[in-house]
């Protein structure tokens, strides 16, 4: 793919989703990341710590779109083409996809029972040549905000690498 076509994907909105933060999903996720803290499981403990619901482990925002994105909550129109719009084009010529980097910025607590809106955008695409391979970096940023107040709660930045 030529550079101009690739750069043309920058700014593309790839997701628009509404998600309920569900309690059982949070507890199961805490198990999976080896966190036994009762704050993710016991509403009394979470309330005593000053949270409006049960809080979530710090990497839960990466997966929360896989849970609680119920059909009737979704905004009008398609949820967006997803990263496949650019990865599909890159993979058409073969290669391998790797998760290069991941970042979270926390603005306010994410808690169970909250309804969140996610908007994901392709922020950057750049290419590096390394050891005979072409590495294409795709940076996608998703902003999560409280559906009621509009307040931003978390920003997740996903950097994936296509190597060929």
């Amino acid at each position: 793919m030529d550079d101009a076509t690739l750069k043309g994907f920058i700014g593309t909105e790839i997701t628009r989703q509404t998600v309920v933060v569900e309690r059982s999903a949070v507890a199961f996720f805490a198990d999976a990341v080896l966190d036994t803290d009762p704050i993710y499981r016991d509403a009394t403990v979470a309330a005593a710590a000053g949270f409006d619901g049960l809080p979530v482990p710090p990497t839960f925002p990466f997966v929360m779109g896989n849970w609680g994105a119920f059909a009737e909550l979704q905004p009008e129109g398609a949820p967006g083409p997803g990263l496949g719009i650019v990865l599909g084009a890159l993979m058409a010529g073969g290669g391998l996809i790797l998760h290069g980097e991941q970042a979270f910025t926390y603005h306010a607590p994410v808690v169970t029972g909250q309804v969140l809106n996610a908007v994901g955008v392709i922020k950057d695409i750049y290419v590096k040549e390394s050891k005979g391979s072409t590495m294409t970096f795709v940076v996608a940023e998703t902003t999560w905000s409280d559906a009621t107040t509009g307040e931003a709660v978390c920003t997740t930045t996903f950097n994936i690498i296509h190597r060929i």
């Binding site: 999976a32 080896l34 966190d35 482990p57 710090p58 790797l98 980097e101 991941q102 970042a103 926390y106």
Partner: peptide
């Protein structure tokens, strides 16, 4: 990253994190 996040939140407190980023 999740395992690191568990050790990190146990140390700084749940809700204390402002940013968390890693390279794999």
């Amino acid at each position: 990253m999740g395992i690191v996040g568990t050790a990190l939140t146990h140390y700084v407190g749940v809700g204390a994190l402002q940013t968390f980023s890693v390279r794999f």
